[in-house]
């Protein structure tokens, strides 16, 4: 399957190929992938793709997926309209 056609992050349309390239560029954490590719930075905030990103990181570094730290969760954990919180 061509990696450049397989979307991993649906929100930001980041492909497997781009994530692998980010790993080669030095990313070793979810946050490193985020800043290089924008994966996990869209509306769903990684609820869909973070586990996939971790799998790629683990695979490329020869570790278990569970050894990759989950990105820090920060509020708001759901999108909120500014008008709702003022």
């Amino acid at each position: 399957m061509p990696d450049d056609k397989l979307i991993v992050c649906r929100c930001e349309e980041v492909t497997l190929d781009e994530i692998k390239k980010a790993v080669k560029d030095g990313a070793s954490t979810v946050s490193g992938i985020k800043k290089r590719t924008r994966a996990c930075m869209g509306m769903c905030q990684g609820r869909v793709c973070q586990s996939l990103v971790k799998k790629v990181l683990a695979h490329e570094s020869g570790n278990q997926a569970d050894s990759i730290e989950t990105a820090t969760s920060r509020s708001p954990v759901r999108p909120i309209q500014l008008g709702e919180i003022i």
Binding site: S75, P76, V77, R78, I80, Q81, E84, I85
Partner: peptide, 15 residues
């Protein structure tokens, strides 16, 4: 939707 827990004082909600 709950967007943050405030430990000891409750939760913040939207909607």
């Amino acid at each position: 939707s709950v967007w943050e827990i405030a430990p000891g004082s409750g939760v913040f909600i939207s909607g």
